[in-house]
Design a protein around this nucleic acid. Structure first.
Length: 518
DNA sequence: ATCGGCTCGCGCAA
DNA sequence: TGCGCGAAGCCGAT
């Protein structure tokens, strides 16, 4: 029988009273069956808990770090964070790497301030991660390893390999979702409406306050006083300020390799959240699908890198508006009764925002977790594969190559504008992402190639690329995933179609084109 | 401006 | 077994 890590209890000072509020969290699971290597009576205070930070690049509101700190406090030892920087991860380019490195600098400085060494190791070829992580965990004589959760194959495979090699407990904590993906649902959900009730049922249990980061004095002391760990940290961590990596430039050179309109890191993320809540939230429900209006949250790059906790966003949104989560969920449930004419109320904006933040994000993780072929056409539902296959050889007015798409050289200036928005800013407007992907289906050799092209462009240019949201969004647009069948038409079959004329009815297409194509 | 039909299959009620 | 309904739509009729 393997080790069972029991639910742990965290105590925190409630801001509204001076009594300690105890609550448990169940956001972790064991990745191997190892028990601690020392006998249960022997406490080796020199063996730290290693938090291998992967998907969630933040110190605040991070359940994985909190879990590591709790285990360390029980063991009277310290915590060391290890971040494994993979160059060119999943086809990422300099823009994503630069964004990451900039956040890592802040993380490293902030972690060290509170007595947590932050080691950055470098995997320049993409195949050294397992060996390097193993080495450093061994060198540090780790007591156990805690990591965060991602449903993407590359990360799951690395964890599986590590799990077979480590002879200490290896624990995964989902700190990217409010309800852990494997608890929210045990199967691939058919659509948002099948996942929604499950999430709504579990939210009262999981949408709790998040404990403040509190470093127990002995946790800090265990590291500060340990010369061996200090020397390993010094020896192993690369120097971020002198790091100089050049990746293959993008097709659109110079101006587009680095993104400068958005600042990386958790401080910048919190600033953006506050700005969104104060300035933009009241536009969200009716204007978020207008690519001319700046009515989106602009939080997705931060969410992708875990620089901001979605749970914190929900808590802040509720605090800012004064609603309770039940109010918002009930409101959505009774929408038909409440939906009178007139301007939308604040609660509609909050409902629309939280629906996207909670249900849509968790649905994307659910999709990748239970469909490991999330980036292949084989993940499309049977009806969609059948209809796409049937219409595969329908005559096409335009067929473009990857290069033509990449260079925004189609006949459709609206499509080209969307492509250029992504190339220039690293973030295409959410509504345009659907149109963009649907048109790649319409103008590619076939749906199999269309999905590949869309994923390549998304992962290359979007700051929030290489994310379950991207794979799910493309599968929705091209493969009917989480969607229903619609009116039959050429090429698409019964996959939902989107037309430029629809965009023209909804927003000022010419203004959008003028903005991104000069 | 607004409406109905198009279309598939899940999940629940019966 | 039947039925309601779903993440963003389109199109033609009114």
């Amino acid at each position: 029988m393997g080790a069972i890590i029991h639910d742990i209890v965290v105590f925190m000072n409630s801001p509204s009273s001076d009594t300690n509020t105890a609550f448990t969290f169940r956001r972790h699971r064991s990745l191997n069956t190892q028990t601690s290597k020392s006998g249960s009576n022997v406490i080796d205070t020199s063996a730290p808990v290693v938090y291998w930070m992967d998907r969630d690049m933040r110190l605040k509101d991070n359940w994985a770090l909190l879990h590591a700190l709790d285990l360390a406090a029980k063991q009277k030892t310290g915590v060391v964070i290890v971040y494994n920087l993979i160059v060119g991860f999943l086809g990422g380019r300099e823009r994503q790497l630069h964004f990451k490195i900039s956040a890592l600098k802040e993380l490293q400085a902030d972690a060290e301030k509170i007595g947590i060494p932050f080691i950055v190791i470098l995997d320049e070829t993409g195949n050294q991660s397992q060996k390097k992580l193993e080495e450093i965990i061994l060198n540090l004589n780790a007591f156990c390893v805690v990591t965060d959760f991602s449903p993407l194959r590359i990360q799951r495979e690395l964890k599986e390999k590590l799990a077979t090699r480590l002879d200490i407990p290896f624990i995964e904590v989902d700190t990217h979702n409010i309800v852990p993906a494997w608890i929210a649902s045990q199967k691939s959900e058919y659509a948002a409406y099948t996942l929604r009730p499950k999430l709504h049922r579990l939210l009262p249990e999981y949408l709790t306050e998040i404990p403040k980061l509190h470093i127990a004095p002995m946790v800090k002391k265990a590291i500060v006083n340990n010369a061996t760990i200090q020397s390993i940290v010094k020896k192993c961590s690369i120097n971020l300020s002198t790091l100089n990596i050049h990746l293959k430039p993008n097709t659109h050179t110079n101006e587009t390799n680095r993104i400068d309109w958005i600042e990386a890191g958790e401080k910048a993320a919190h600033k953006q959240l506050q700005s969104f809540l104060s300035n933009t939230l009241t536009l969200y429900a009716d204007k978020r699908n207008d690519p001319i209006m700046d009515a989106q949250s602009n939080l997705s790059p931060y969410l992708h890198y875990g620089m901001l906790s979605p749970q914190r966003i929900v808590l802040e949104t509720l605090a800012h508006t004064g609603y309770r989560i039940e109010d918002v969920l009930d409101e959505k449930k009774n929408k038909a009764k409440v939906d009178l004419e007139g301007p939308l109320g604040l609660i509609d904006h909050v409902g629309a925002f939280l629906e996207e933040l909670i249900v849509r994000r968790e649905l994307a993780d659910n999709f990748c977790l239970y469909n490991p072929d999330y980036d292949s056409y084989t993940c499309f539902p049977a009806w969609a594969q059948a209809t796409l296959k049937k219409h595969k050889d329908d005559p096409k007015e335009h067929v473009y190559s990857l290069t033509q798409f990449e260079n925004a050289a189609t006949h459709d200036q609206l499509w080209n504008a969307a492509q250029m928005e992504m190339v220039r800013t690293g973030k295409m407007h959410g509504y345009m992402r659907m149109y963009w992907a649907k048109k790649i289906l319409e103008w590619s050799k076939d749906y199999i190639e269309a999905q590949k092209i869309a994923i390549y462009l998304n992962d290359t240019y979007e700051l929030d690329g290489r994310d379950p949201n991207g794979y799910a969004g493309i599968a929705w647009s091209i493969g009917g995933v989480h969607d229903r069948a619609w009116f039959t038409r050429p090429i698409f079959g019964t996959i939902r179609y989107m037309a430029r004329s629809g965009c023209e009815k909804k927003f000022d297409v010419d203004a959008y084109i003028a903005k991104w194509l000069k």
